[in-house]
Design a protein around this nucleic acid. Structure first.
Lengths: 235, 235
DNA sequence: TAAGTTAGTTGGACTGTACAACTAAGTATG
DNA sequence: CATACTTAGTTGTACAGTCCAACTAACTTA
């Protein structure tokens, strides 16, 4: 490692933040952590996205760092994880020039209750915001994550990653509607979802208070399926 | 600025790279720069994406840094610029743990010939690759850029940013076809493009060797327009 | 004047969505 | 035990946009 002047350049602080979504109580929720209350910390006591500094000794790459932070807060090991973008500027962190690599993760509801860290808590997403004022530029990052999620939902199968292993078509549709925050046409939804070849029926039925419903599960496809068309909004 | 142990963490090298696309000679081309031949440099003499270290004294934010690097190599000040993603790992740069923030830019053909830096040169994109072997993980970044461009072209108006200020519909269609590397239906293309309300006719006509064609220009819309449907491939 | 080239339009077959009305299978209620 | 209520799932019609081919239009060249 030679002593190039460039290597002596002061380097930005480098962090990774994760926007963790789940459907809970029939609403889209996001996991936040409370920053330490010590006055020496930036934004003491404020809510923030889970994240922190890259550990160049321990983290092989950025995604491994994101997985580590997600596991630390939720105990979840392998959710859907996608890079969202990066935010870097001289002013976003009072400690100096900093850049964060933001990821977003989708958790099935049943895993979202598990091994939550003590400083972590779920908050409902209202519009593209959340009730408490967020530290740093995390409100902007959260908004980008919600918009990206909504946007991708229009033409991919992403919401399937928010479902438990087995689910009914109306439940899946409900999840789409929660994420998109608008009603969808039942028959168009069924036609498209089945044509997308993303889910397969299992032998069982779900017996509810009403008519029993067919159970489906995600096919083995790892990547989200792209639909050829968007759902056109009714009306 | 307090002396938190975290701030003493060794920080990754932080760079910004820009994938610069233009249509030249009826083909999709990308701008590359040749790395210095000094043996003390990583990948001496190899071709690489334009980019370099973030200057935390001079760059206000990541995008400003990308604009600076783009201007340095092409002279172009305000092209279409979009964040592509970030790549960071312990091994991608022999000098140590590094993270790059990648952007991609679209240039109209007539600006692409201008004030090129001496070490810069255009290369045709073949598939998702380019002929020379690229430094670092830049082949991977380039591939991601091409796939993203192709993918977005399916449902947005991005290619309009590759056009000169005034253009005919057949020229615009040709640009779509070059980017997508497949033929498009003429009448469906016209219907969709005009319905998208993205371009507007100007009073003039283009007089070519054959029948004259109506000239159009981009509407003032700053953001690329999202189509409601994809182009279905013929056949 | 005829042939060639490219711009742009027209029309019919087809496909998938939008929407409403329908059937199906269970539970709750009087 | 019959009726109403609820939710799952299907069917049918209208409509919009595409796919594709054939057409017209305007100009150049031989």
């Amino acid at each position: 490692m030679q002593e190039k002047p460039e290597l002596d350049f002061p380097r930005p602080l480098t962090t990774v933040d994760v926007v963790i979504f789940a459907i809970r109580s029939d609403a889209l929720q996001v996991l936040l952590v409370q920053r330490p209350k010590a006055e020496s910390e930036p934004f003491p006591g404020a809510w923030a996205l889970p994240g922190g500094f890259v550990d160049i000794a321990g983290d092989r790459d950025l995604e491994a760092c994101a997985v580590r932070k997600l596991k630390a807060k939720t105990g979840v090991v392998s959710p859907y994880l996608e890079q969202l973008g990066s935010w870097g500027s001289a002013t976003r962190d009072p400690r100096g020039w900093s850049a964060t690599h933001a990821y977003f993760a989708l958790l099935p509801e049943h895993t979202a209750g598990g091994a939550l860290a003590g400083d972590a808590q779920w908050f409902a997403v209202e519009g593209e915001k959340v009730r408490p004022k967020l530290a740093f530029d995390h409100a902007e990052i959260l908004q980008a994550a919600v918009l990206r999620l909504r946007n991708k939902v229009e033409y991919t199968s992403l919401p399937a990653y928010l479902m438990p292993q087995e689910f009914t078509l109306p439940e899946l549709q409900r999840t789409y509607e929660i994420v998109l925050d608008r009603p969808l046409e039942k028959s168009a939804f069924r036609t498209r979802m089945l044509a997308a070849d993303l889910i397969e029926p299992v032998a069982k039925m779900r017996k509810g208070p009403n008519r029993p419903a067919q159970l489906y599960r995600l096919k083995k496809a790892k990547a989200p399926v792209f639909f050829t068309r968007t759902f056109n909004p009714p009306g």
